[in-house]
């Protein structure tokens, strides 16, 4: 790990200012992802700005829904009565992630920004377009860029929305639930504040896989807003993984469904573990409205969501798995 300096921010505006004051600065919240990445020399900040003391950890009603502070801990959010009552899907997804110890440290903002678990991204001896986007001519020992995972060991990689530069996935469980809940991310920066709908927050890799999200380097996430859906309905977070707990999702599904007399009134389906961002296609959800809540409808929707899926050497199973998981999750919320 490279030596770094440390500063603590007490107000959001100070945090943004501190970050801008020195290049190569990074916010640190729970540190559960950033510190690991620093140990592996994937992230090498010169300065850490500690935001964990900011007064941004509240969970409060807002506009009929909830506003969750960016520094609320994952475990506190999952245990919160308002969250459990109004948005059990979020609580379920948070509890499916990591371990109790990690959830006690991990924050909502940090979880939104947690980086891919791509094996090559984590190993600085390996080529990776996300970690090392351009050749640095000044350093002779700099490795040529490229994507190690393409043609390599890619069991956990993306089947949807990937590019020739990068086939990484977003590893978060929380993000998948947020996508199905139409969350809105509140951010503030040197140029003021803005609101970013969750589906626009994370991005596909394209030719610039170094950018996971549309957040600017100097912007601070302050809160996540969860709007109330027009109708209630049931929700479920289904996570398929290599062991019963404490493993990232191979595939996950956040599903919400409102049915009336066996007919679908409203549907939300977001997939995790398959793409560089939570995978949601509102057009597919719209086609489900008015159809019977049957396996046939669910299968058609699943196949539409997975249309264009492109497997690599070791992850072709994810296509079938995702289809099965979508159907199972929808059956669970329709029964």
């Amino acid at each position: 790990m490279k030596s770094f300096s440390y500063a603590q921010a007490t107000k959001p505006a100070d945090a943004v200012q501190l970050l801008g004051a020195q290049p190569q600065s990074k916010f640190i919240a729970g540190g559960t992802n950033l510190v690991d990445l620093m140990k592996y020399a994937v992230e090498n900040p010169d300065r850490l700005v500690d935001i964990s003391h900011l007064d941004l950890a509240k969970i409060e009603p807002a506009n009929g829904g909830l506003r969750i502070g960016a520094l609320a801990r994952n475990s506190d959010v999952a245990a919160n009565a308002l969250v459990q009552k109004q948005f059990p899907l979020l609580a379920e997804a948070l509890l499916a992630g990591a371990s109790p110890q990690l959830r006690n440290m991990a924050t909502m903002g940090g979880n939104l920004l947690q980086r891919t678990r791509c094996n090559y991204f984590y190993d600085v001896s390996q080529p990776c377009n996300k970690r090392t986007p351009g050749r640095d001519a000044g350093d002779a020992a700099f490795r040529p860029t490229g994507c190690g995972a393409i043609g390599g060991y890619n069991r956990i990689h993306a089947i949807l929305g990937s590019s020739e530069s990068c086939i990484a996935t977003n590893p978060s469980d929380m993000n998948v639930a947020l996508a199905a809940l139409d969350a809105v991310v509140q951010v503030t920066g040197p140029n003021g504040s803005r609101s970013i709908p969750i589906l626009e927050f994370h991005r596909l890799p394209g030719t610039t896989p170094q950018r996971d999200t549309v957040l600017e380097d100097n912007e601070l996430i302050t809160a996540i807003d969860l709007p109330t859906s027009a109708v209630g309905g049931k929700s479920h977070y289904l996570k398929v993984r290599d062991r019963a707990s404490y493993a990232f999702a191979l595939v996950s599904v956040a599903a919400r469904l409102v049915t009336q007399n066996g007919m679908i009134r409203e549907a939300r389906i977001a997939l995790g573990g398959v793409a560089h961002k939570p995978w949601r296609l509102p057009v597919v959800e719209q086609t489900m409205v008015g159809k019977p809540a049957t396996e046939a409808t669910f299968r058609t929707a699943a196949q539409a969501l997975l249309a264009g899926a492109k497997p690599h050497e070791h992850n072709a199973f994810k296509i079938q798995l995702a289809e099965n998981a979508i159907i199972r999750a929808l059956q669970t919320v329709s029964s």
Partner: peptide
């Protein structure tokens, strides 16, 4: 490529 305990899986209590 999985030289860590996050990706080299062994059972946890829940298993």
């Amino acid at each position: 490529m999985n030289a860590n305990l996050a990706e080299y899986h062994v059972p946890v209590n829940a298993d």
